[in-house]
């Protein structure tokens, strides 16, 4: 019985990239546990397996099995093992030592946040390059999805992926600018916005200033949540972090930045272009006031068609 178990383990180690584990050694360890210490076979196998896995830094076998190749827009559940063909759209700064890389992946259907942990010891990804990612785990936070790369993830460079199809254009009116817009502070560990100087995960932080807008663009059919990053906020409102800080300082109130953004955006028509990330937010790449190019004849034609 012990011999059989030992052979099984030996095979398993080989499949995990460690073919040199001596069969005799495995057998001895199992024998010691099973026959001398009366450990049940299952438990003994588990103990020996864990011991080698730890010592040889073996990769655990896949929890999700075959990790199906999916498109980004189809990611709708967390804790799933998947594979993706995707392009590294953006790499974000991260000061957190446990995170090797963080940013956005995109394919023809959408974009999604990704995180690579330092302990996974994966090769670094290059911005703008496309890869086949085998065995990623999906995750979600506040209804938004992300993928995590881990030790088991296999990264293979592939030909450039066209992510243009994932872009959408929408024209409508800004009907809301939400709280959390304007001058904010982010946690230096995880990049999440601080609330009264507190990060939900990392407690009290000094934080780093950032500027962003969370708004709703409504075309009469859909109410679309949109996000403007620092750069887009500047392009549309003319406010950058430096100006915003001065505004807040002069007024002794950071809310003045939000008020000014509201004054500029609310109730006006804009045409935006961007990608929908995580199924909810449209990340704006381009945004302009909608031009007043009304052709009366066309409008009348639509009326006469009734």
């Amino acid at each position: 019985m012990v011999k059989e178990l030992a052979r099984e383990l030996k095979e398993k180690f080989s499949s995990m990239g460690a073919p040199d584990v001596p069969l005799k050694e495995i057998e001895q360890k199992l024998d010691l546990l099973v026959n001398q210490y009366k450990v049940p076979e299952d438990e003994a196998r588990r103990t020996v397996y864990n011991q080698y896995a730890r010592d040889l830094k073996l990769q655990r076998p896949q929890a999700g099995g075959d990790a199906e190749l999916v498109k980004i827009k189809d990611i709708a559940k967390d804790g799933m093992w998947i594979s993706l063909n995707a392009k590294v759209m953006q790499l974000w700064e991260s000061d957190k030592s446990s995170i090797a890389q963080v940013g956005l992946l995109g394919d023809e259907t959408g974009i999604i946040k990704f995180v690579v942990f330092a302990k996974s010891e994966l090769p670094l990804l290059a911005e703008g390059k496309s890869y086949h990612f085998s065995k990623l785990v999906t995750d979600s936070w506040q209804g938004r999805f992300s993928v995590k790369l881990n030790k088991a993830t296999v990264i293979t460079p592939i030909d450039d992926i066209d992510t243009g199809g994932a872009e959408t254009t929408m024209t409508g009116a800004i009907v809301d600018v939400q709280s959390g817009s304007g001058l904010i502070k982010r946690c230096p560990e995880c990049n999440r916005p601080l609330n009264k100087g507190m990060c939900v995960d990392h407690g009290k932080q000094d934080g780093e200033y950032d500027l962003r807008v969370k708004a709703v663009l409504d075309d009469g059919r859909t109410a679309q949540d949109i996000i403007l990053n620092q750069e887009m906020t500047y392009k549309v409102t003319g406010i950058d972090v430096k100006i915003a800080k001065k505004m807040a300082m002069d007024a002794v109130d950071p809310a003045v930045v939000l008020d000014e953004i509201k004054r500029i955006l609310l109730g006006k028509y804009f045409t935006v272009r961007g990608r929908v990330a995580g199924g909810r937010y449209l990340l704006v790449n381009e945004m302009d006031r909608t031009a007043k190019d009304i052709t009366l004849d066309e409008v009348l034609k639509k009326v006469e068609a009734i």
């Binding site: 009469g220 028509y269 007043k292 009304i294 409008v299």
Partner: peptide, 11 residues
């Protein structure tokens, strides 16, 4: 903006 809305509402 007023003109854009009139067009929008007509359509």
């Amino acid at each position: 903006t007023r003109d854009l809305w009139v067009k929008d509402a007509i359509e």
